[in-house]
């Protein structure tokens, strides 16, 4: 039971973008070593602006 709840929680975190920053950090350190990464706040603000700069469409 506890494992299932844990899995659901992880899935929610993943799907809502809550842990997007952690993954960004991993990619950043791998690809741009030595360059300081964005802070959490900066990252989410940049991501939000980018996502909605071209919001695409959605189904009615």
């Amino acid at each position: 039971m506890k494992e299932h709840l844990r899995a659901i929680w992880d899935y929610l975190k993943e799907i809502s973008g809550e842990n997007a920053y952690d993954r960004y950090l991993a990619v950043h350190t791998a690809t741009h070593p030595g360059k300081p990464p964005m802070s959490r706040g900066e990252f989410y603000r940049a991501r939000q602006d980018e996502k909605f700069a071209n919001p695409g469409s959605r189904c009615p």
Binding site: K13, S16, E18, Y21, R40, G41, F43, Y44, R45, Q48
Partner: peptide, 14 residues
């Protein structure tokens, strides 16, 4: 809240 207070805490704010 999401922009300034707790950026990226999407689940919490939802």
């Amino acid at each position: 809240y999401m922009r300034f207070l707790r950026p990226g805490r999407v689940l919490e704010v939802s």
